[in-house]
Amino acid sequence: MINLPLNNCFFFYLSYAGEGMSELPLADRATIANMSPEYGATMGFFPVDHVTLQYLKLTGRSDETVSMIESYLRANKMFVDYNEPQVERVYSSYLELKLEDVEPCVSGPKRPHDRVPLKEMKVDWHACLNNKVGFKGFAIPTESQNKVAEFTFNGTKAHLRHGDVVIAAITSCTNTSNPYVMLGAALVAKKACDLGLEVKPWIKTSLAPGSGVVTKYIERSGLQKYLNQLGFHIVGYGCTTCIGNSGDINEAVASAITENDIVAAAVLSGNRNFEGRVHPLTRANYLASPPLVVAYALAGTVDIDFETEPIGITKDGERIFFKDIWPSSEEIASVSSLLC
Rank of each mutant, 00 (worst) to 15 (best):
N130G: 08
V106F: 04
Y13D: 10
G108W: 02
L6R: 12
S62H: 01
G44T: 15
L292Q: 08
G317H: 14
V51C: 06
V90L: 10
E143D: 07
M68C: 01
V165H: 00
G184F: 11
F46L: 11
A333D: 15
M121G: 03
L268E: 06
N154Q: 12
F11H: 14
E318I: 15
A299M: 02
I311Q: 07
M43I: 13
D316P: 13
S36A: 15
L73T: 00
N260I: 05
M182K: 01
N228F: 05
R161K: 11
C173I: 03
S336R: 14
D124P: 00
F321R: 13
L4R: 07
M35R: 12
R220M: 09
G244Y: 06
N8Q: 12
K110Y: 00
A333Q: 14
P37M: 09
A169H: 02
T31Y: 09
I203E: 01
R111K: 07
V166E: 01
K204P: 01
L4C: 04
N250M: 01
N285A: 10
R89M: 07
V335A: 00
A33S: 15
E259P: 07
V90I: 14
L223N: 06
D124F: 14
A256K: 03
C239G: 12
S144T: 01
D101E: 14
Y226R: 09
K110F: 03
V214Y: 05
G270V: 11
N154D: 10
S15L: 11
S172R: 06
Y226K: 14
A284K: 01
L197N: 08
A33R: 02
D194K: 14
E84F: 04
W202G: 06
P85R: 05
G270R: 02
N131T: 09
V148W: 02
G300F: 04
S15V: 13
V123W: 04
M182S: 00
L227W: 02
G134C: 08
S328Y: 13
V106I: 13
D114K: 12
K157Q: 03
D63T: 06
W202A: 07
Q224K: 13
K132Y: 07
